[in-house]
Design a binder for these strands. Structure first.
Lengths: 111, 111
DNA sequence: CTCCTTTATATCCATATTTGATATATCACT
DNA sequence: AGTGATATATCAAATATGGATATAAAGGAG
């Protein structure tokens, strides 16, 4: 049901696109969503967007959905995509926790 | 004091290497540290490691430190590197929070 | 003393990922 | 008719990553 390579880790743009597609959205709306949610700090251009959409369709993380407007293509995360996103949230959460502890431990030097 | 490009976002291996270098470590010890801390789920090979060490030295996030053993090269994060790591932890934390909220909101459909 | 494993650093090159630039077309507004 | 926003799409270049490989010294086993 998926043919991509690993998918053990999701990159930043893949992560944001999957988050956007927890609700159905078309490509352009994904770009706007990510820019708004990150207050302009993370932007996804069309090249990155459509490259990744293709990859996510191929690997079964998202699927196409019918849209009323003919010139738009709407996508949404599959159940598989949602669970992959949940895994990735946990993975990133652990990364944050590790770094937080390490940074805390530092400072109180020696002992 | 830094000549790298953006550094606005750190990739996964860069993140792990910087976390490892909150305390002084030499290259091989970084590889072992990351593998241990991630329980074998994330491995950094020599190619990735030394490529990134070079990049981090160039951009001033880490610096070399004298080591008793002559055949080892020890590195440690600079103050600049620590603050970059802190920023990145916050950035990733916000990503986790966003995804968590979005995933929570889903499920209770309509309204 | 020789073999093997671990430690340790380093690079080549192929593959994967990302992105700037560009192209096309429709729609809304003036 | 012209401009800006909407909307999808691709090319080519730049970046990033990782498997394989090379080198060498140290430590332990037999």
């Amino acid at each position: 049901m998926a043919k991509g390579k690993s998918l053990d880790e999701l990159t930043d743009p893949v992560f944001y696109i999957l988050v956007a597609l927890v609700e159905p959205r078309h490509g352009y709306a994904i770009m706007q969503y990510v820019e708004e949610e990150t207050e302009g700090t993370f932007k996804i251009g069309p090249a990155t967007l459509y490259t990744i959409i293709k990859k996510l369709l191929d690997s079964g993380l998202i699927e196409a959905e019918p849209d009323s407007e003919p010139r738009r293509k709407t996508y949404v995360a599959t159940n598989y995509g949602i669970s992959k996103l949940e895994e990735e949230v946990e993975r990133r959460s652990r990364m944050v926790d590790l770094a937080t502890i390490v940074l805390q431990t530092r400072g109180r030097k020696g002992q």
